[in-house]
Amino acid sequence: MKKKLFLVVIALCSKALVAQDPQLFETTWYLQKLTIDTNDIFPPNTEFIEYDETNFFLEPPTISTGYCDAFGIEVLYSTMDDEFEALSVVELGGTCIDIDNINFTSEYYSFFEDGTGIKNPFAYEITDSGGALSLLISNVNGDTALYGDETLAINEVASPSLSVFPNPVMDVLHIHSTTEIFKTVTIFNLQGQEVMSLKFQQNNPTIDTGNLQAGVYFLKAESDTEKQFTAKFVKK
């Protein structure tokens, strides 16, 4: 009887977790506005932003987000309400050099965590306005982050001189550049942990990702001229 009851509890919890709005996980979100202490803060309108995508994942329970630089968030999704708790917020970096983008990224990071700690819990609401989706996340202080399902700027996920494909990848990931010779490539997971580091001396190296678990990863490549490039990819 105890075993059956235990299985029923697991089934109910799993059902409740999946019962959250599936659009949260099915949609790629783009940050449109922060409201901090009742002040509206909008993303700088720049031509190149390295990380403007936000994705939510159930397995593993994480958020991939950022603006000019990236960060990963380990989360615990509520089984009852449209909310989650952030267990850790890890800065994954990037190649951001524009001061306006750096300042906005700092404001965005502080929406989740600052010197006082992580601002749990976070509640969210998804609105469908004639086919256009919006996501509003609120932290414990009442600050909000507003996202849409379309980007506001002309952006690319990877650095202009670096592309990775296929993305998502099943096994072999190709790194391509028409201008750079890469000497090292390092891969990090959303927890900021280094999971792979390789040395090359070529502009189009390949990486066997067969041993990586399914999830989102960030790739940092350094050229023979000491330039750094970054990209995000998904391992199936």
Rank of each mutant, 00 (worst) to 15 (best):
G210M: 03
T206S: 14
F84G: 01
L17R: 03
T116H: 08
D224V: 14
F233A: 08
S64T: 06
T230Q: 00
T178G: 10
Q193N: 15
K3I: 11
L7F: 06
Y217P: 08
L34D: 13
P168G: 03
A214S: 08
Y51T: 00
I41V: 15
K232H: 01
E50P: 03
S78T: 05
E113G: 10
A214E: 13
E107L: 08
L136D: 12
L17A: 14
L219Y: 07
D98A: 15
E107V: 04
P22L: 05
I10F: 14
T186Q: 02
E83R: 15
S64E: 11
S129W: 10
Q213I: 05
S129Y: 08
A231F: 06
D69M: 07
E47H: 04
F104P: 02
I63W: 05
K15V: 15
Y109K: 09
D171G: 01
I118F: 11
F112P: 00
D224T: 15
L24M: 07
V8I: 09
A19P: 01
F56Q: 05
S134V: 13
L162W: 00
A231M: 06
D37H: 12
M196I: 01
D82A: 15
K3L: 08
V164R: 05
P60A: 11
I36C: 09
T230E: 02
F71R: 04
E74P: 00
E83Q: 12
P205H: 06
V89G: 05
L34N: 07
A16H: 10
L58V: 07
D81R: 03
Q213H: 14
L219F: 06
G93N: 09
V9N: 05
E113V: 14
I137Q: 02
E53K: 08
G66Q: 04
Q191A: 03
L34E: 12
V90C: 09
I73E: 03
N211F: 06
Y124N: 15
E125V: 11
S197D: 06
G142A: 12
I99C: 11
T35H: 12
D98T: 15
G192F: 13
S14Y: 12
I97M: 14
G210W: 02
F122M: 11
S197L: 06
Y77S: 10
L34C: 13
D128S: 10
G130K: 00
S161I: 02
S110R: 15
G66C: 03
F6K: 15
K15F: 13
T46W: 07
E156C: 09
Y109S: 09
K232E: 04
I73M: 07
F71L: 02
L17M: 15
E156S: 11
N141M: 04
F57K: 01
S134N: 13
K199Y: 13
E222M: 08
L212Q: 11
G115I: 07
S14D: 10
F188D: 02
V89Y: 00
M170A: 12
I187Q: 00
T46Y: 06
F229N: 01
S138I: 10
G66K: 03
F200I: 10
E222V: 11
T28F: 02
T27E: 08
T46E: 04
Y217I: 01
I126M: 09
Y77F: 15
N139W: 13
L87H: 05
